[in-house]
């Protein structure tokens, strides 16, 4: 059983990764949001890549609007079986208020299309950049950077960014919000966040993968956690904090081993009864 506390870096998928801005390291350009995360290895899952674009966001929005996003994208994309835009995790060089990625991932399909067909043809679109004194952060690309040749997409050492679609059970969003049931079959709550520990298999040369270590299970319909249950002191608006803590007073933590992995669909099943799990306040 994975021991607490872990010495490796601990992150929470929902709180620290999902919906953060992705920034290209070389020039500070904004690429996309972390619309979803792709997992690998069903038995001992770890985060393999960042997923973005309408094909990743659509299913998370859900409803007719989500289906419309996915449907329209599939219709317009030239590939036979298009998948979401993806960035491999080993390219991630920093996780902070934004996710910084190295290499030179190309912009998303829609950006390239709008650039080539709408904005590009308008006079002045490529003219002198406003502000000659621009900081180093946004300085010229190094020579030969693919970003300087609009429209010429080519695979980069990021690996192919578009593969066929990714099955639901390998998407982080599929784990979040899933219903969890007790061994007895009773509903124990739903997954509010996924705890990740950076001690998974090696990705690339030196980075270890973020392994799925456990799940924060909240009573159904208590809403988001916002990180307030994992207080590390410091000032915070007392009232907001108190409300969220009260809503989550019955939240528990289950390690990956305490859940039955053989349920790719439907509710996740606990191996250990809910009342024997660690309470969040003990974490």
């Amino acid at each position: 059983m994975s021991a607490l506390p872990e010495s490796a870096r601990v992150l929470h998928a929902h709180l620290h990764l999902m919906d953060r801005q992705v920034v290209r390291e070389v020039d500070g350009r904004l690429l996309c949001k972390v619309d979803d995360l792709e997992l690998a290895d069903r038995a001992n899952p770890y985060v393999k890549s960042i997923l973005a674009g309408p094909l990743a966001l659509g299913p998370r929005i859900g409803g007719w609007l989500g289906r419309l996003m996915v449907g329209a994208t599939e219709l317009l994309r030239p590939e036979e079986d298009p998948g979401p835009y993806r960035i491999r995790m080993h390219l991630v060089s920093n996780i902070g208020s934004a996710i910084t990625v190295g290499g030179d991932p190309e912009p998303l399909a829609l950006e390239r299309w709008v650039r080539d067909h709408i904005i590009g043809p308008i006079p002045g679109s490529s003219g002198e950049r406003p502000g000659k004194h621009s900081g180093e952060r946004f300085d010229e690309h190094p020579a030969g950077h693919p970003g300087e040749r609009p429209g010429k997409a080519r695979p980069t050492h990021a690996g192919p960014t578009r593969l066929a679609d990714i099955p639901d059970e390998l998407r982080m969003s599929h784990l979040l919000d899933r219903v969890v049931i007790d061994p007895s079959g009773e509903v124990a709550g739903q997954v509010a966040d996924v705890r990740l520990v950076q001690d998974g298999p090696l990705l690339g040369e030196a980075t270890q993968a973020l392994r799925v270590a456990g799940y924060i299970i909240a009573p159904s319909h208590t809403g988001q956690l916002f990180g307030y249950e994992r207080a590390r002191g410091g000032a915070r608006p007392a009232l907001v904090s108190a409300i969220i803590r009260r809503l989550h007073r019955n939240s528990v933590y289950a390690t990956h081993e305490q859940l039955d992995p053989s349920t790719p669909d439907g509710p996740l099943k606990l191996r250990t009864p809910r009342d024997r799990l660690l309470s969040l306040t003990e974490l």
Binding site: C32, L57, E111, R115, I119, I122, S125, S126, S134
Partner: peptide, 18 residues
């Protein structure tokens, strides 16, 4: 949506924003 935005880059580089 996480698109590149702003007037601090050339319009060509923030196409969806413009």
């Amino acid at each position: 949506f996480g698109w590149q935005w702003g007037k601090f880059v050339r319009p060509l580089e923030a196409a969806r924003f413009h």
